[in-house]
Design a protein around this nucleic acid. Structure first.
Lengths: 161, 161
DNA sequence: GGGGGATTGTTGTTGTGACAACAACATACC
DNA sequence: GGTATGTTGTTGTCACAACAACAATCCCCC
């Protein structure tokens, strides 16, 4: 039972607001990811797929470079290659060569992809309203997004990306 | 380029504060997870391992039921079984039978586990200070934790667990 | 006290992501 | 023009997590 006083002392360092925030971020992320994922199952649309479709839908020409998409999705390029493989096999996306850089590939939204993303919008929004909109009011949601964005940007700056 | 007006309209639903918050939560989580993970690599201590060790260190007797630990870690019980397998193989944890319930197993911190968790405390805290403490002041960190906790609790309430 | 149903933890299977190595290509320099 | 340097995307291999099926145990109520 008894730890040496020294070790115990250093373990107490984990009682820290930043550790708390980090832990809470992980737990909230997992809970939300699982909850929304279960709800989107009936569309056969995993959360990361929807993430890709949304980002494409928002981009001019509904297309994005693989590398850029990987950065946006916080994934490795190889991870994105596999992800796009699957989404393409499902017909929601297809690849086009980049006109001005023959190394590059563009992930492009297909009509089917646009369709399913649009169909999932209503229920997904309803889920998020239940999950986030109920415990937090509009101001608080804005606050949360802002705090998270500042951390995200800072981490990206520091880590070179 | 032109989507049917109808589809486009439904796609616009994704321009929503709740979707924004959700996306930012995922991105921030991934960035922070990767950044802290890279830093902890030199200890041979993946982030989830540290999560387990910290939770055990905080529990009376430095021990916790498998199921409870799984809930705390937001993991499936099978996922936790494998995770504890690995941590146990590394010698940071060992399993004991539950005295009052012969089905149950307790994950118990070993001296070596306590030692490595204590050793990682200082550098990990320094990382979090750089990653979270720099962009956010103390009040904002508290705010962030509070907002996240409220969402997490609400999701847990709704989703039965 | 003895079934029926729930709970606890492990296992086989499957899917997904990261890392390293590679080939194709672009860009800058001389 | 040709070579050096860096980038882009795919693949092999590995680690990790979820789901489903299962075995052991507990609980409860008749």
């Amino acid at each position: 039972m008894a730890a040496t006083p020294d070790t115990t002392k250093r373990l107490d360092r984990y009682d820290d607001p930043r550790v708390e925030a980090f832990g809470m971020l992980i737990e909230t992320h997992n809970e939300l990811f699982n909850a929304t994922g279960r709800a989107l199952e009936e569309f056969g649309l995993p959360v990361p797929w929807l993430g890709v479709l949304i980002r494409l839908a928002r981009s001019p020409g509904e297309r994005l470079r693989m590398t850029e998409l990987a950065r946006d999705m916080t994934m490795s390029t190889s991870g994105l290659t596999r992800l796009i493989d699957r989404i393409e096999a499902a017909g929601h996306v297809h690849r086009e060569r980049c006109p001005d850089d023959r190394r590059g590939l563009l992930a492009v939204l297909t009509p089917a992809g646009r369709e399913i993303a649009a169909a999932a919008a209503e229920p997904h929004l309803a889920d998020l309203e239940r999950l986030i909109g109920e415990p937090l009011d509009a101001d608080e949601i804005e606050q949360l997004t802002d705090l998270l964005r500042r951390v995200r940007n800072h981490v990206r700056d520091i880590c070179g990306a």
